[in-house]
Amino acid sequence: MDKFNRLASHPAILFLIAGAVLFILYAWLNPTHDPKTVHVSAGRIAALEKSFASVNQRVPTPEERQAFIHRYIEEEVLYREALALNLHLSDEIVRRRLVGTMEFLNESAAAYEDPSEEDLRTFWQSNRTDFIRPARLSLTHVYFNADNGAEEAKAAAEAALPQLIDGAEPRTLGDLFLRGRVLRGKNQSQLADIFGTTLAQELMAMDVGPWLGPVTSVFGFHLVRIDKRVEMNERSFEDVREDLLAAWRQQRIKTLRIERLNNLVESYNVVVDDEARLE
């Protein structure tokens, strides 16, 4: 694959591909027309009119109509002259646009496929670590708002701790915390969204069972009891089948893009003067 990547990025090869694409496009765009006849069809004029109307929100005046038809003719003539001069074979912007379009076509054609059971299992074996479930916590916390002074809030929290340890009902103590008092099944990233990254990290390390704290967040102080901790664990094949399918498809789109390009390149007789690059 590395060898291919080096090949694929070689300007000469890209040039060849671009040339081929252009040749085909040129043939499509100019089926049997006399190169010296510019035919402005009624359909073309209607399209130009629509385009004008959608920008200006009104129909063109006869003069404006004449002007954009004339502009279209000029554009068409210049376009053909450019082709006659082979500008499309040397102009960098044209080349990039064509190559880019072709790459996209290869990709989008590959977007939907199903793997065999065996393929999926093989994929599972080589990507198992991607399907680990992060550790999750369920917790209850009592919050002490620090907006009216950190010292007071901390003292209130310290005073409430023995009451909680003695079995006081959490909802009767502390202040309102809008993102919830009882949080269940949250992973570290979800806890960080609620409490900030620092406290989320501390929570993940706390023991299950006892009331602990006070700990601090951007909001103030919290007394926390970790009610349940589910350790990081690996999920079974059946458990992650749908996720695997999604990941497989994503990878498949990328692989097919490269494979198709590879096949195309192989159908060419490629001569590269710099031998060292082919090693």
Binding site: R136, T140, G167, G180, R184, R225, D227
Partner: peptide, 30 residues
């Protein structure tokens, strides 16, 4: 479900699922 060490079971607000799925661990009646 999550049972706390003190025996307090957080209430949950059961959802009428219209599809096949596992019940959510993060259910919070508030």
């Amino acid at each position: 479900n999550s049972t706390s060490p003190s025996g307090e079971v957080a209430d949950s607000a059961p959802i009428q699922y219209t599809e096949q799925r596992a019940a959510c661990a993060d259910n919070n009646p508030n």
